[in-house]
């Protein structure tokens, strides 16, 4: 699930206006064929990540080139996400605390999580996920009193084309996970029964996250209206700020931020993992010093980058113009070529 719920409403409402929430689930569903393609490559090339598979299918040169692109894109994006942590905390609840402390605290957590291994990472996500769901549900239900249903009408007044363009802006979210799946593939079970289970999980995860994000976008549009939703980058944080129960419980966004931090740690860790796996596969660089080096690069990107709306624009840019085209072309090409080669071998035999 990562942190898609933070910017999703702003993105879809900028493209689709008041109807933007409708495109969230269909755009997420785009992830299903890609997830299934990756899993089909798992059964064809067991215990290998897609960088290794690329070297086998496309040849060493092109495989290495894809690997370098994979490292650069995921590394840069991981650094931007680290920057987002500092940005969120500085802008919302702790403006006077040096932003470097947020970077440092988060990167220490990320490093510790990655050092503990992929199994601990999976369990960490397993614990945090219900907390995220709970926080989202609380956020959404406690905002019901501020809902104005009229802002949704008239439905589809601009036609369906804006929704199509909005879908293209949400699709990169799914591709971020596909990039992570490409790396984690080497650790997944290769038994046919378990691959079947993984396929079912892909469906389940896409629908669960898609429906939740759709509700997040839906609620924000209902509360703020489409124009304000587009303008507020972190609408969910503002929603958290507005939560009030009988004038006793108020201003609890700092508590929600604790949960969002968990989500961000998961996402940054996922990208740290991808870079580390990429370095190991492509350049045979492994060990503690390289993991520390990647963390240092993340810190450098976070420190070096401007904050606020420019940071969000940069994240959107990487999502739309790097992650989306790279992943769609790479996975589709790899899957197609692998199928073609497999078919040729069978016919040849």
């Amino acid at each position: 699930m990562g942190t898609t719920f933070l910017p999703v409403a702003s993105i879809v409402s900028s493209a689709g206006g008041r109807d933007g929430w409708m495109i969230v689930l269909p755009a997420f569903i785009l992830g299903i064929p890609y997830g299934l393609m990756v899993l089909s490559l798992l059964s064809q090339f067991p215990n290998k990540n897609l960088l290794q598979v690329s070297e086998i299918v496309f040849g060493k040169g092109i495989g290495k080139l894809i690997g370098v692109l994979y490292i650069l894109i995921t590394g840069y994006f991981g650094g931007l996400l680290l920057g987002q942590v500092g940005d969120i905390y500085e802008r919302s609840i702790m403006p006077l605390t040096p932003i470097s402390l947020f970077y440092l605290g988060t990167i220490i957590l990320v490093f510790y999580l990655c050092k503990s291994g992929i199994e601990v990472f999976a369990r960490f996500s397993e614990v945090i996920f219900p907390l995220i769901i709970l926080a989202l549900i609380l956020n959404l239900t406690l905002s019901i009193s501020r809902i104005e249903p009229g802002v949704l009408l008239p439905i589809l007044s601009e036609g369906v084309m804006p929704l199509f363009w909005g879908g293209l802006k949400v699709a990169p979210f799914v591709m971020e996970y596909i990039l992570f799946m490409a790396g984690i593939l080497a650790f997944l079970p290769t038994d046919m029964k378990e691959i079947g289970q993984l396929r079912r999980e892909v469906w389940r995860a896409v629908f669960l996250v898609g429906i939740l994000d759709m509700f997040v976008a839906f609620t924000q549009i209902l509360v703020f209206g489409p124009f304000e939703t587009t303008r507020i980058v972190y609408g969910l944080l503002v929603l958290g700020k507005m939560v009030e129960v009988s004038r006793t419980v108020a201003g609890v966004e700092s508590l929600f931020l604790g949960v969002w931090l968990g989500a961000l740690v998961i996402k940054i860790s996922a990208f740290l993992f991808t870079v580390v796996w990429g370095l190991e596969t492509v350049m045979n660089l492994k060990g503690l010093k390289w993991e520390i080096a990647v963390c240092a690069v993340f810190m450098g990107i976070a420190f070096g980058f401007v904050r606020g709306s420019v940071l969000i624009s940069e994240i959107s840019f990487v999502d739309n113009y790097l992650i989306l085209p790279f992943t769609t072309i790479w996975i589709l090409g790899l899957w197609g070529t692998a199928r073609w080669k497999k078919g040729k071998n069978i016919r040849g035999n």
């Binding site: 609840i93 957590l109 700092s254 604790g258």
Partner: peptide, 20 residues
């Protein structure tokens, strides 16, 4: 020193330790 951010960092570090 870091408010709820510090509490969250400490809590998550403890959680990672327990999970390992």
């Amino acid at each position: 020193s870091l408010g709820f951010f510090g509490v969250a960092v400490g809590f998550y570090a403890g959680l990672i330790h327990l999970l390992s």
